[in-house]
Nucleic acid binder design. Structure first.
Length: 114
RNA sequence: CGAGCAGGCUGGACAGCUGCGGGCAAAGCCCGAAAGGGCCUGCCUGAGGAAAGUCCGAGCUCCACAGGGCGAGAAUAACGGCUAACGGCCGCCGGGGGUGACCCCAGGGAAAGUGCAACAGAGAGAUACCGCCGGGUGCAAACCCGGUAAGGAUGGAAAGGCGAGGUAAGAGCUCACCAGCGCGCAGGAGACUGCGCGGCUCUGCAAACCCUAUUCGGAGCAACACCGCAGAGGGACAAGAUGUGUCGGCCCGGCACGUCCCGAGAAGGUGGCAUCGAGCCGCGAUGGCAACAUCCGGCCAAGAUAGAUGGUUGUCCACGACAGAACUCGGCUUAUAGGUCUGGUCGCAAA
RNA sequence: GGCCCGGUCGUCAAGCGGUUAAGACACCGCCCUUUCACGGCGGGUUCACGAGUUCGAAUCUCGUCCGGGUCA
């Protein structure tokens, strides 16, 4: 089961498959990030919380934490990329500042931070 | 004080900053020919007791507002009531458990029929292995014939239980009590209970098939309705009777549609849908043991469409369990840290 | 969101309520062989979990937990 969230544009399932197949990935215990340059020039973002995370409460919690972390970093990110954040098992038990730290490190490794 | 029982309520709080969904308002700005859309600002509002499982019952929508016959299937099961309805709830009867408060029960029918009861055991509605008693043969051990089912052994279950009389030994063979069956009387709305009499009886399993009584049309908001976009090419059959679809199976009957095959393309949006209702609240009043009903007063409370309640800081405490609406209600079941209130019970101590 | 199926050793699976739950492949131990393979012998199953019906449940009934399928 896949959930998506919109920041600047929508993500559909074909976009998810494209980013998974062609994008670069960065891994940490509470977050996995996929990055792929797109043609539209917009910044697009999607979140995946699989059923492995837990029940509906834990999946919602993971989505909120990731969305808040991205909201704090969004102005630092250069546009023109599709980003997908995948929640992991520790995500629902962790603070959004921790997710934010992991996310900024991964985006810096990807080289798309201003 | 300790232990335990039943029922109800609650399900972290406050403040600052910063974010999200919905609604309303009006000033400004942007896009547009207009209708309108977007941004910004302010105000209001924003998950649960189980939102869960999808186990029942309904509303709503479409198929014919649900038709006749046959067949099949499913569900329920003491009795009386409540409810829109229910497999739910309340009361009560019967049975079981607990010292008790109280709890549990799919609780119709086994003399309508069929079937099963492995192993053990002589025998599982049919009998005699060891016994007991009488008679016969035999020196004896033992054997044969007959009676009997009290005792032993096996089993979950052994032909009503137990005691007395009776007898060759025994047996409801006779009697008292208890259990079961039938009849009568009394009480009760009824299930049933109590009393009396009679004959002397019959295992268990129907969550085995089945029988009896009652109920049940199907599908489900991904139902369905409307709008828009795209595509509509080729072939065969038929020209009032067939075919197809639908009424979960068949027949009758009804309704709708020309039908079928091959091929190509497709994109979604709006309503349904958000409270005006079998609605919620009240230590309200009346009736009722209660479930509940009637009346009175007050209230209008999420509505997304990849899916909204978050983050962070500080203070406090019991350090926060189970867990997130997706068409809507009434129940049931399952998960659940604690806190709190009310009413009974048992034990100990005191008065 | 709705509606349907299923759960038996590691895997594939049989199993009319009644013995110690058949088999096959795999695994482990022993024997055979100089060694391996083949062959022979032996071993291992809370019948997903919890209740109930029954004398007795893998089987029948109910409830949980998993795993599938299907509907735009």
């Amino acid at each position: 089961m896949i959930f998506m969230d919109v920041f600047c544009s929508i993500c559909e399932n074909k976009d998810f498959r494209r980013v998974y197949a062609k994008g670069r990935s960065f891994v940490s215990p509470c977050l996995v990030t996929y990055v792929l340059k797109n043609r539209s020039g917009d910044l697009r973002m999607g979140i995946t919380t699989s059923k492995k995370i837990g029940n509906a409460v834990k999946r919602s919690r993971s989505r909120r934490v990731i969305r808040e972390a991205f909201r704090m970093l969004a102005k630092e990110v250069r546009p023109g990329y599709d980003l997908i954040f995948v929640a992991r098992g520790k995500t629902p038990t962790v603070k959004s500042t921790d997710v934010c730290r992991a996310m900024s490190r991964q985006l810096r490794d990807a080289g798309i931070l201003r």
